[in-house]
Amino acid sequence: MKSAVITFPGSNCDRDMDVALKKFGFKNKMVWHQDVELPKSDLVVLPGGFSYGDYLRCGSMASKSKIMQSVINFANSGGMVMGICNGFQILVETGLVPGVLLRNKYLEFICKNVFVKIRNKNSDYFKNINNEVLELHIAHNEGNYFCTNDQLKEIEDHNQIAINYCNIDGKIEEKFNPNGSLKNIAGIFNKEKNVLGMMPHPERMIDPSLSGNDGSLFFKNLINNLK
């Protein structure tokens, strides 16, 4: 399985993602934002970080960079595109997934482990995964998911919510919502479920001695689904 990770100026989780993808068997290539063509890939990842210093709005400048037209075309032709954290912010700015990510409700940069409940196992991202709840890491200042009422209805009608913030038992309640996200939304799909944007970082949970193992479950399952 081949993957590509896009590096923007200010990306800082691109190499972590590279390590994670390779650990679970992907042949990964790093792609510079000024490149025009994507290498042949089964999965394209927009990594976390602070692309363009978060100027204007987080992700807005990166969403207009040269490589993104290829990424958008790839996604529109059914290719798997995953945006993590800043990558999620870039995805919403391209319009590939609906909504926006606002400043966290209490204006704090949040850096901690959270639990997320998998809401939709019909996609190649979560199909066949045994767990209902994953413990993942978040680190962001703008992760407060918001969309219009019309968009929310559409998202719910098409089962586009991928993961919600929850507690260890999978209870989705406001008190387990770290950043004020609408409906505790931590990650969403496009309608076709080939594009996933999420705030938590699975690539930070691939080593039990350093952090945790739930990211490993995610990547192992993902590569098996793509084979």
Binding site: L56, S60, K64, P98, L102, F146, T148, Q151
Partner: peptide, 8 residues
């Protein structure tokens, strides 16, 4: 196209 995000 760029300066505003019309969702918000």
């Amino acid at each position: 196209k760029l300066l505003a995000n019309l969702v918000i």
